[in-house]
Design a protein around this nucleic acid. Structure first.
Lengths: 208, 208
DNA sequence: CCAGACATCACCCAAAAAGGGGGATATTTG
DNA sequence: CAAATATCCCCCTTTTTGGGTGATGTCTGG
């Protein structure tokens, strides 16, 4: 059998901390190295214990989980971190993912889901609770009733990508005047009169 | 007990189609309305059958799943669509999510995962296989070794959001000249000399 | 088949923004 | 304390932008 998955728990609530510990300790192939009530407590032992997976709470005394994330990543670049929190706001999720979390579970997740998540992140996958997945997926969703034509959308996307009209023209092999013409139409449709407004409006309404 | 979850399957491979059908039919609370080998076959019956969840393949004769997605969404705005495919490329995933898929499973998903996914999407959540979750999460990940300072990153993000230097200045309550100064430093650090190059480079390297 | 939507290109103009130099001066932080 | 960072100032030219007005070919849905 493979090496056991070495797990570390950082969670300030004692009841939960113990619950997670016993939950995961009982899983064959899992080994809970330790469980700390805060990142500041865990910090100096991280390198020595070198866990494979860390279950990390966000709301904690001292350094919170989101601030701890990059620090942990710097100390243990190969560790997989699973956020385990009551918060499921868009900002929290995006910040955690941006800082390199491999998983994001909310605390209503059943024990089986937590066990599963540990295995998933260790084998290179991602783990999210369904409400988090919902948030993430919605952020990708485009508005299917855009007033913009395909070409207009294409052009606005390139402009939103930072290109000037003449660069867009080069990219699409059309004349700069044509791009200008499209952009004017876009402005009318979105009821704006500058590039930045157009991008903001289009993004808000998910036209791009 | 609640109303059964009404399911439709669109999958060209006959073996799989039958397998999914029998898998889901056996689940209490699930009802498989029908299983079609292509979207073009399913099309005219969609409205009448009004399923809650559609399992949708991508590679199919005729209209493929990704093109079918917006059409289905237009016909049945409240349906939850779960993509079920062998493809797990970034482009496919993003396109499917952009067009309103509520789930994206790859075909190596165990039967239990498919059953679970149907329930999840129907109750408003999102469902992804772990490899897909991985792709999605990686797309959010920032480079933690950015050469840019916090302020420079902040400014470049605003510029990438379409704002001009003077708008950025207003947003951050600083002088336009200060923004200019930061931007010059950004250009040096990224070794570029225009806004569009800076945005492209920074996005490529995930500095923003 | 035909009107309307769409994509393409043209030329006029003034204002705004961008980019390249050269600096200075606090403030923060390791 | 020295280095990094954030702030602001002035010079200059080139590029981009946005508004107006119009034309032409193609495609497409009713």
């Amino acid at each position: 059998m493979d090496q056991k998955i070495r797990i570390l728990i950082i969670e300030d609530d004692e009841i939960l901390r113990m619950a997670y510990r016993s939950l995961l300790s009982d899983v064959p192939g899992y080994q809970v190295l330790n469980a700390y009530p805060s990142f500041d407590d865990a910090r100096r032992y991280l390198q020595a214990e070198s866990p494979d997976v860390i279950l990390l709470d966000i709301e904690m005394p001292g350094t919170n989980g989101l601030d701890a994330l990059p620090v942990i990543k710097k100390m243990l670049p190969d560790v997989s971190i699973v956020i385990l929190t009551v918060f499921d706001s868009e900002e929290m999720v995006f910040e955690a993912l941006g800082k390199g979390a491999s998983g994001y579970l909310t605390k209503n997740s059943p024990g089986a889901r937590i066990i599963e998540a540990v295995r998933e992140v260790r084998s290179g996958g991602g783990a999210m609770s369904t409400n988090v997945a919902r948030i993430v997926m919605r952020s990708f969703q485009k508005n299917l009733n855009s007033p913009l034509t395909r070409r207009e959308t294409e052009i606005l996307e390139l402009i939103a990508g930072g290109q000037t009209k003449s660069q867009v023209a080069q990219t699409l092999f059309i004349d700069t005047e044509t791009v200008r013409s499209h952009v004017k139409n876009i402005y009318v449709k979105l009821d704006v009169n500058s590039k930045s407004e157009a991008i903001r409006t289009a993004r808000d309404k998910r036209f791009i």
